[in-house]
Amino acid sequence: MSRFLFVVPPLVGHINPAAAVAGELAARGHEVAWAGHPGLLGRLLTRQDPVFPVATPEEKPRPAGLRGFAALKHLWEEWFVPLAEAMEPGVEQAMTRFHPDLAVVDQQTVAGALVAERSGLRFATSATTSAELLGAAGTPKVDEWIRDRLGELRQRIGSTRAAYDPRFSPLLTIAFTTVDLVGPYPDPGGPVAFVGPALAERPAEPGFPWDWIDAEPDRPVVLLTMGTVNSEAGARFLSECVEAVRERARRLRAVVADPGGALGEEPFRDHDVLIARSVPQLALLERTAAVVCHAGHNTVVEALSNGVPLVVAPIRDDQPAVATQVTEAGAGVRVRFARADRESIGAALDTVLDNPVYAAAAHRIGESFRAAGGAPAAAAHLEKLAIDA
């Protein structure tokens, strides 16, 4: 049996797919350990795998209104690069103490790739979003700017003999999507295994009011979620979404995931709207007619896995790229986050709910996900790579 070390950032959407794959590897008899934020891993993992703690920098809030290259520049300079430098000592200690046969490194924890390369450890990349795979389409200067930042990081914490892009292992990149959704993509310099979403078992949400969900089966439920957005703009958008549903109260109800309390201090429910700090998203999507979201990769693929069409309102980072994939696949409608109001959001909901082509496209993408194999397929690829060492 082999030993696998998962190196992950302190981001829920990046840990959940890795956890599904790790669970599959453990079920096959392999040893699994983690290098990451111990508190977050402790909340998200359902298994008692060893966790090697790593330091993480304090995330600096991005100035309101940052979009495009300005937002990307801030993300790299104020988060990805400091994260790599903070994680480097802990990642090195994890590799030294655990002696893995293979590291499985999240694409955005560049420290994992750079420490592995300088240590001579083989690693695979875990790509939980397809945005890096697609690159900055049509903007080669942006790609060049990112490569320069990666080169500077490599000089400090990697091997100066290496020349590949550390966001992509030269041995294997596991992409948690399919070509049916991604579309054409440039060669990243190494093999890519498209396995579709890896949906992990998650801790239960005690006290979630399933009775409210089941009370009116003839009135479909719409899920409204914007990730961890908790700004004034996020509150405005969610409020407009709620009003769009209330205007359709004879035919719709809404569950609002509001982890930051953007809509108020306390959870709330009435006949038409349920607002909760957290929701059992995977289970809820099995009973959901549509999703309104920020085009976060995990929410999108989880919705499509259930054949649920989307209204997407991307804000920044990888979200515009994922939103484009959704609309080009015919599985959803895009609205503008900063300008959308209850009329435009409501019209988009009417479109995806009333026109069956959107649900059909969502089902088609979901079928491609199931055919790709998910966590078992990813585990099989990693097993082979570890054995071939």
Rank of each mutant, 00 (worst) to 15 (best):
F52R: 00
P17T: 01
V12K: 03
P209T: 02
D270Q: 00
A329H: 00
A386I: 08
A204C: 07
V273I: 15
R316L: 15
P63M: 04
G330R: 13
A20G: 06
R236W: 02
R147H: 14
E132Q: 09
D318Y: 10
L121W: 12
A175C: 05
V51T: 04
A33V: 02
A215T: 02
V222K: 01
P184V: 07
D165F: 00
A163Q: 09
Q48L: 04
A331C: 15
G190V: 08
E328D: 12
E85K: 10
R156C: 12
V301Q: 03
F6A: 12
T351L: 13
P259N: 05
P63H: 01
V222D: 01
L284P: 12
S278V: 15
R47M: 10
A204D: 13
T173R: 06
L133P: 06
A378S: 14
A64V: 13
D106N: 14
Q319T: 14
G36K: 01
A204Y: 05
A200D: 09
E59N: 07
A103Q: 09
Q48K: 09
F208L: 12
D211P: 00
P53S: 11
R364H: 14
F337S: 09
Q48F: 01
V352G: 06
R62V: 02
V335A: 06
L153K: 03
G261T: 14
P191F: 13
P220F: 04
T178H: 01
A113C: 15
W76Q: 07
E302H: 07
H381Q: 12
A289E: 02
G264Q: 14
Q107A: 09
S231F: 10
